[in-house]
């Protein structure tokens, strides 16, 4: 019996999907060492999507993202150095599924350098919603990629470190390990000093800005508000950007 060429032709139209298609569907996961102990990290073809400490990683990921999670042979390029150094700028992140506001908040937090902290109100001003300080706190509390978006560097203006996805104690440990002088930040806050200015440069900064840390005691002046510092003739620092209306 000869085969019907039409049926043979149709059967030959079957095709295999490209290898990479699975990575559009499923995320991969690895365990990696971090400054606060071992972490589980999930990543997709877009970047790192989820960082989790402790039990219940797979269930938490499934509940939040609804995407299959398969083991990875190795961590994504750049993850281990980013966790080790706290410098995460180049690492691709997968922030799909977040609102524009959440993404803006995380992108703003990502600009805070290691060893420095910023108040929640600074993030709110940065994303153009100066009154949404509480919403900023909520968005940071839902940060899916702690450490990689360093939400631990956003602290309360009264000198307390504030809440953290992995707990306030972990936040304090991380900041100390990154070289933030929390005692000094608290001492300044107790004196109602939230900005430091230098009378040699005429610049006013957040206390943990690397420019502020260089000011010698005789030239250092503390301020409660930016308006007071400006009234005294100081201009906001272009590095730590205490004011949003200053061009970089």
């Amino acid at each position: 019996m000869t085969q019907d060429p039409l049926l043979t032709g149709l059967a030959a139209l079957a095709a295999e999907p490209p290898e990479a298609l699975l990575d559009r569907i499923a995320a991969r996961w690895v365990r990696v060492p971090a400054p606060i102990g071992e972490l589980a990290v999930a990543f997709t073809d877009h970047g790192v999507a989820y960082v989790h400490a402790g039990e219940g990683f797979a269930e938490a990921y499934r509940k939040r993202f609804g995407r299959p999670l398969l083991p990875a042979a190795r961590p994504p390029a750049g993850l281990l150095p980013a966790l080790r150094t706290g410098r995460t700028a180049g690492l691709p992140l997968d922030l799909r599924g977040m609102s524009d506001f959440q993404r803006d908040v995380l992108e703003a937090a990502r600009t805070i350098p290691r060893g420095e902290v910023r108040p929640y109100s600074w993030i709110a001003a940065r994303v153009g919603r100066p009154r949404a300080v509480r919403a900023v706190g909520t968005a940071l509390g839902r940060n899916p990629v702690p450490l990689l978006v360093p939400c631990h560097r956003v602290t309360r203006s009264d000198g307390a470190v504030g809440d953290y996805v992995f707990g306030a104690a972990a936040k304090e440990r991380l900041l100390l390990a990154e070289g933030v002088d929390l005692d000094r930040v608290r001492a300044l806050a107790d004196e109602r000093v939230f900005y430091l200015a230098s009378d040699t440069t005429g610049v006013v900064c957040f206390p943990t800005c690397h420019n502020a840390r260089r000011i010698t005691p005789v030239h250092r002046h503390g301020f409660r508000s930016l308006a007071q510092a400006r009234a005294a003739g100081y201009r906001p620092c272009r590095t730590c950007r205490p004011a949003q209306d200053v061009a970089v």
Binding site: L13, A14, A15, E16, P17, L21, L22, I25, A26, A58, R62, P68, L69, L70
Partner: peptide, 23 residues
């Protein structure tokens, strides 16, 4: 295990689903 099971499901039926989708 849902995730390992998914890998099996994908391995077994990816060609079928993709072929149908393509044609």
């Amino acid at each position: 295990d849902l995730d390992e099971g998914f890998a099996e499901l994908y391995g077994a039926y990816r060609g079928l689903v993709f072929s149908a989708a393509l044609r």
